[in-house]
C-alpha cells in the first residue's frame, strides 16, 4: 500500500475514532473520563502519602520530592491507560456492535492504518489527561495547600521530554497493536486484556513506587518494559531523577520500543493468519 494512501486511511480512522470516542458534546462525560478519573486516582495515592508523611513527620523535603515524582508518574500513566484500554476493546466493539471489522479488513490497508489512526485517538486523549492532571496537581498542592512541591511545570526540559514522549507513545502503540491482535483471536478475554496489561504496567512500571522496592525477579520484568524507561526519561525531564541517566534510559526506551514493535508485528501476523483460518473477522460473540 502506498504511503500516501496509508496516511489517508489512518487520518480518517483517527477522525472517526475522535468523533466516536471523544465525549466533547457531553460535558459531564468529558469531565468524568478526561479529568476526574485520572485526578481521583492520583489524589487517593497522594493523600495516602501525605498522611504517611504527617504520621512519620520526618523529612518533609523527601516526601515533597516523592510527591512530585508520584504526580508526574501518575499523570503520564494516562497514556498507558488510554492506549491499553482503548486499543484492547477496539476490535471487540467494531466487530460486534458496529459489524464493521470485516469490511475494514478487506479494504486495501486491512486493519493497519485503522488501528494506528484509532490508537492516535488514545494518544490525544492521553495528552489531555496528562496536561490537566499536571495543572490540577500544581493548583491543588502548591496553589491551595502551599506544600511547595518541586513540581516545576515551566522548568521542564522540553528537549528531553519530547523525544521521551514520542518514543514512549510508539512503544505503547506497539503494545496496543499486540492487544488488538490478541483480541481478534481471543475468546471472551477482550474485557480483561486491557485491564490486566495496564495493571501490570501500573505495578511494575514504577508509577507509584520505585521499581527498586520490588523483589529481584520482578524487577527483571520491570527492566524489559518500555513503560519503565518512558517514566524514567519523563521524570528526568522534570528534574525529578538524575539527569545523567537520561541518555542511557532513552536508549533503553528505544530498544524496548523496537522489541515491542517487532513483537507486535509478529503477534499481529499470527493472529491475522489464525483469524483467516477460523473466520474470526466477522465472528459474532455469544454474549
Amino acid at each position: 500500500m502506498a504511503v500516501a494512501d496509508f496516511v489517508k486511511s489512518a487520518r480518517e480512522s483517527f477522525r472517526v475514532g475522535w468523533k466516536i470516542e471523544s465525549n466533547w458534546t457531553d460535558p459531564v462525560l468529558f469531565a468524568t473520563y478526561q479529568i476526574i478519573r485520572p485526578l481521583a486516582s492520583l489524589l487517593i495515592v497522594a493523600f495516602i502519602v501525605i498522611i504517611g508523611a504527617s504520621v512519620s513527620a520526618a523529612g518533609s523535603l523527601f516526601y515533597n520530592q516523592y510527591l512530585a515524582w508520584l504526580i508526574v508518574g501518575t499523570a503520564f500513566y494516562a497514556y498507558v491507560l488510554q492506549a491499553m484500554l482503548g486499543m484492547s476493546l477496539l476490535v471487540f466493539i467494531d466487530r460486534n456492535r458496529y459489524e464493521i471489522l470485516k469490511n475494514i479488513y478487506i479494504s486495501p490497508g486491512t486493519l493497519h492504518p485503522y488501528i494506528i489512526g484509532r490508537g492516535l485517538v488514545s494518544v490525544v486523549n492521553g495528552t489531555i489527561s496528562v496536561v490537566l492532571t499536571l495543572l490540577f496537581s500544581e493548583a491543588i498542592f502548591n496553589g491551595v495547600l502551599h506544600m511547595n512541591i518541586p513540581l516545576n511545570l515551566l522548568g521542564v526540559n522540553l528537549f528531553m521530554l519530547i523525544p521521551a514522549v514520542i518514543l514512549g507513545i510508539i512503544g505503547l502503540l506497539a503494545i496496543g497493536y499486540m492487544l488488538c491482535a490478541l483480541s481478534i483471536v481471543a475468546n471472551r478475554m477482550e474485557f480483561i486484556l486491557g485491564d490486566s496489561v495496564s495493571g501490570i504496567f501500573f505495578l511494575l512500571g514504577g508509577v507509584i513506587f520505585p521499581i527498586s522496592l520490588l523483589p529481584g525477579p520482578v524487577q527483571a520484568i520491570s527492566n524489559v518494559l518500555p513503560v519503565t524507561y518512558f517514566l524514567n526519561t519523563v521524570r528526568e525531564s522534570f528534574g525529578l531523577l538524575p539527569v545523567s541517566n537520561y541518555t542511557s534510559d532513552l536508549a533503553l526506551l528505544g530498544v524496548t520500543t523496537l522489541v515491542a514493535l517487532a513483537l507486535g508485528i509478529l503477534v499481529f501476523r499470527g493472529a491475522e493468519q489464525r483469524a483467516r483460518k477460523l473466520g474470526l473477522f466477522d465472528r459474532k460473540s455469544e454474549y
Binding site: M1, A2, A4, K8, R11, S13, V16, N103, S107
Partner: peptide, 15 residues
C-alpha cells in the same frame, strides 16, 4: 456518524 461521514470513511480506506 451520518450517512455522508460513514461513506467518506470508507472512501478514504480505499484512498
Amino acid at each position: 456518524l451520518s450517512v455522508k461521514e460513514n461513506l467518506w470513511f470508507f472512501s478514504q480506506l480505499y484512498g
